[in-house]
Design a protein around this nucleic acid. Structure first.
Lengths: 336, 336
DNA sequence: CTGAAAGCGCTTACAG
DNA sequence: CTGAAAGCGCTTACAG
């Protein structure tokens, strides 16, 4: 590997001058700079990130912590979109992306130790069990953290506008004449709380009855538990005319249950999804849903994290809320 | 940050002894080792990866190059699954994962330079425009490369068994009585070539006519171009009784075209997908398709890459072929 | 079994 | 504008 020293001897200059010329700092005679750069190219010089990091204490590396309760990880349709835009934005700003894990050779260390070890400058936490002690430790450490769809005290965060988006969804369904609106919600979490609040308050505001039996729990992104919940709702004497599902994948499960019951969407019963993944718009009937602006969520998260790295003494902790978009599609019909 | 030097002074030992004790090499008195480890824990010592890498020339970091022609990147359903298992396997073996890109601060460098700069030990190339000069440069360099679904000369690779899987699909469709089998294939690539070969040879072997008009090109993972191609096939006088699509996402486009033509799957026309993504089994009719073993593909790629890093002088370049699984589902009916 | 010394490749005050 | 020197935190022959 050719080093700065090779350039220096070839040019007859000191190592420090070469370093300055290469990095464009301080005063270096234009001619000298040109000669150095030319020689570097000629020799195929590539700097050594480890050496630089050791000296400057900067790695320009952001970590991603990314694992949901069902271990979908990267295959989670919603979060893979968020991650994708996070990555683009971060790379554009000169940062590298890596994944945080617990391995250290053949041993196991904590997530925080892994970050320290590798000199990771900041971490984006998404789609993770926030109650895990190691995640808490990381979020409470001096490593800047930005979370998505969850609030860690003292950390920046980007949130989708669950409460208001949910409210909009309920109002839309109501505008189609529905009064008996069931809500199959995800398991308990910050997001779920927000959505339940949006649902309950809006129902109340519209003067609609909130039936305890109309609110069922199901795992996120799990069509099977969603199917079960839907079946339960369909069996009720006074069954709902519309079912709100926790996400689009769950909606696929609901559709299956409805079809197996010999019913049709939206003629016999209406449903909605959540997230607005591409598949929800490729089926018939197209799914009424909330399309999350995953591009903005990821980009804002990257920007915020980088900002907070630069302003570690005075980070921006105000939640950034990203509004979703109602897709008023075919799976909601007029209530009869 | 507490360093090895802090431990050494606290213990009254030399830095070298501390290093040896911590790393478990060479002879260190058991008592000494215990004292060092205890003090390290007490002080909250975490090693410095940059310093170690600078000295040992090893980063234990694998790079991912990952961008398809349509810039789906991480959101590509098939490849995100492959990546997910690649990541698990690599991390279990003590390697870190990062993404390769062209940024160097505010400047742009080549992919190979980025790898050299960051000391990346090996790269997994997936879902990329293999003809790009920078990708070629990387694949032809001394950095070990493993590719997925593509063969770079001199590099290891993991391939799905496109030719045989395609053949199995055609034979399955034929077993249901279909003779007029159209093939909407993806744009030209290694994978496409293999599948076309599988299609053509099997059709021929079954004594079926191969109509030039039955073979149409469409972008991968693009429901819109697939829909267009399907519409074209449906308008033909002598239209096919079954259409093979390039992937499951495309199949969604085909289904739309068929529905809009007032026809039904599989009663009026049969279709198949490819890849076996989860959504293909959540719709009605469930999609007949080839389910790729993305878990194995990713794991084998990681294992192979790590093997080739360790055996750089004598790498394993024999393609690893991973068979898919035929899902004989509802979207193919009996030909009338 | 332990330690002194060199050095990985770079950056950066400091002096000139 | 240029250079000598120190040092980032670690590992590793080598000597004892």
């Amino acid at each position: 590997m050719v080093s700065i020293r090779d350039i220096s001897s070839k040019c007859g200059l000191s190592v420090s001058t070469v370093s300055k010329a290469l990095n464009g700092y301080s005063y270096v005679k234009e001619e000298t700079r040109r000669k150095v750069i030319e020689t570097a190219k000629e020799l195929g010089y590539v700097p050594n990130a480890s050496a630089r990091a050791l000296k400057t204490n900067r790695t320009f590396t952001l970590g991603i912590l990314f694992a949901d309760d069902q271990h979908n990880g990267l295959t989670h349709l919603y979060f893979s979109h968020v991650l994708n835009s996070f990555k683009s934005e971060a790379e554009e700003r000169g940062y590298n992306i890596t994944f945080i894990h617990k391995r250290y050779g053949k041993q196991t260390i904590t997530l925080l130790q892994n970050c320290k070890f590798r000199g990771i400058e900041g971490v984006c936490i998404a789609c993770v069990e926030p109650d895990e002690p190691e995640v808490q430790e990381l979020a409470g450490s001096d490593v800047p953290v930005v979370s998505i769809d969850y609030i860690f005290p003292g950390c920046g965060c980007v949130l989708s506008d669950n409460r208001n988006d949910m409210s909009e969804l309920v109002r839309y369904v109501h505008s189609k004449g529905h009064k008996k609106i069931a809500f199959v919600h995800g398991t308990d979490s910050y997001v779920t709380q927000q959505r339940i609040n949006g649902y309950v308050d809006t129902m109340r505001g519209l003067g609609l009855e909130i039936k305890r039996e109309y609110m069922l729990e199901s795992l996120y992104a799990n069509p099977h538990t969603a199917k079960k919940a839907t079946e339960k709702l369909l069996r009720m004497e006074d069954r709902p005319t519309c079912i709100l599902l926790p996400d689009d994948v769950s909606a696929f499960g609901a559709i299956e249950a409805i079809r197996e019951a010999g019913l049709k969407v939206p003629e016999d019963i209406s449903i909605t999804g959540y997230d607005g993944v591409v598949y929800s718009q490729l089926i018939y009937p197209r799914l009424a849903t909330i399309r999350q602006d995953t591009g903005r969520i990821g980009r804002e998260a990257a920007k915020l994290l980088i900002f907070n790295i630069k302003h570690a003494q005075n980070p921006n902790l105000v939640p950034i809320v990203i509004k979703g978009e109602l897709l008023a599609e075919q799976s909601v019909g007029f209530a009869r």
